[in-house]
Design a protein around this nucleic acid. Structure first.
Length: 325
DNA sequence: AAATTAGGTTACGCGAC
DNA sequence: GTCGCCAAACCTAATTT
């Protein structure tokens, strides 16, 4: 807000994605044991920056959204039943209207009745196809949820993926393509958009469609929905990879630094972000004296050792660094 | 463990048909 | 729309340091 408050922002470049995220150092993620736990006040969640596990998903008030000031108001506003969800559909309770112009006793209907029934059938058919669309959506949303769980993606990103899928459905992008493919592509897009990217390889592991189809469908969806199509920033992978490798925060920020410096030199262009991040982590670990092998990093980042070697030589060269010993 | 090398695979964009 | 082609990045695998 005021100019006097901006002096501490010099080292803020490592987390620039959200203004409402604060680190809570006393917490450890029960899933992966790392300390990269962030509290997100806007979403009412506390989640692990590394694996995306939501540790506290309902810091929100779970009480009623209304207030009652006396007994009669309470009586009036109180209600029961399941909460309304975005996944509400017809629950499989469909109605069928016979095509025969007969009443319940098999007698012919009057002309006025026949006309009425014809109109009813028309509208019923329209409603039913709308339900088909809903069923399609239902299946897609459950798939998104399944894949997101397997990848440890937080709820907030699943919601974004659902919204993207609905938009794709509305704009008729699904026709001629598999529901699975679009669902995977929207999840991939949502992760990238929110700065917690999963690589195509990671998506491929949990999806039922192959890597190239995911990539193709993603490009298609991103183009049609005019999503920002920037390549993932390698720095976004670093916290997750570092945690998986049990590396210290020092190594992590060093890796971030290497990424930033060398990317400015134009070294990143055309290279895989995961490989780039992996190489920066390797260099950082060596510089900080941490024991890590290329093959360990390679398996976490899902790139080969060869790629790491090529990248880290380039990066050290450009940054003017040398590893002693 | 790290480096080197060779050969194969892949996705992409482009023009021709 | 698809066929053929290209160039770059990345992969696998074998071998050496």
């Amino acid at each position: 807000m005021s100019d006097t408050m901006t002096t501490a922002s010099d080292r803020q470049d490592e987390r620039t994605d959200s203004t409402s995220v604060t680190q809570s150092s006393e917490l450890e993620c029960p899933e992966c044991g790392c300390s990269a736990v962030y509290r997100n006040h806007e979403r009412g969640e506390r989640c692990c920056d590394h694996c995306g596990l939501v540790i506290e998903g309902s810091m929100l008030d779970t009480g009623p959204e209304w207030r009652a000031f006396d007994a009669s108001e309470r009586e009036e506003k109180s209600r029961v039943g399941a909460p309304v969800t975005r996944t509400l559909h017809d629950k499989g309770l469909t109605t069928a209207i016979s095509w025969q112009d007969r009443d319940g006793n098999g007698r012919a209907l009057s002309s006025k009745r026949r006309e009425q029934m014809r109109r009813l059938r028309t509208w019923h058919e329209r409603a039913r196809t709308a339900n088909n669309k809903e069923r399609n959506l239902q299946f897609a949303l459950s798939e998104i949820d399944r894949m997101a769980s397997a990848l440890g993606v937080p709820q907030s990103i699943r919601e974004i993926a659902s919204v993207l899928y609905r938009r794709a459905l509305d704009e008729d992008l699904i026709r001629g393509r598999s529901i699975e493919g679009i669902a995977t592509a929207t999840l991939y897009a949502a992760c990238r958009q929110e700065g917690l990217p999963r690589s195509l390889d990671e998506l491929t592991e949990v999806s039922r469609v192959d890597r190239s189809e995911i990539a193709r469908t993603y490009r298609y969806v991103a183009r049609e929905l005019s999503l920002a199509l920037e390549p993932a920033d390698p720095r976004q992978y670093i916290p997750r990879f570092c945690s998986a490798l049990d590396l210290s925060g020092t190594v992590q920020s060093k890796a971030m630094e290497i990424c930033s410096i060398t990317a400015e030199e134009g070294l990143l262009s055309g290279k895989s972000p995961t490989g780039y991040a992996a190489a920066a982590i390797y260099s950082a670990a060596r510089l900080c004296g941490s024991e890590t092998t290329q093959s360990d990093i390679a398996s976490v980042a899902q790139v080969t050792e060869v790629t790491i070697r090529k990248r880290y030589h380039e990066q050290l060269d450009a940054a003017g660094l040398t590893i002693e010993g």
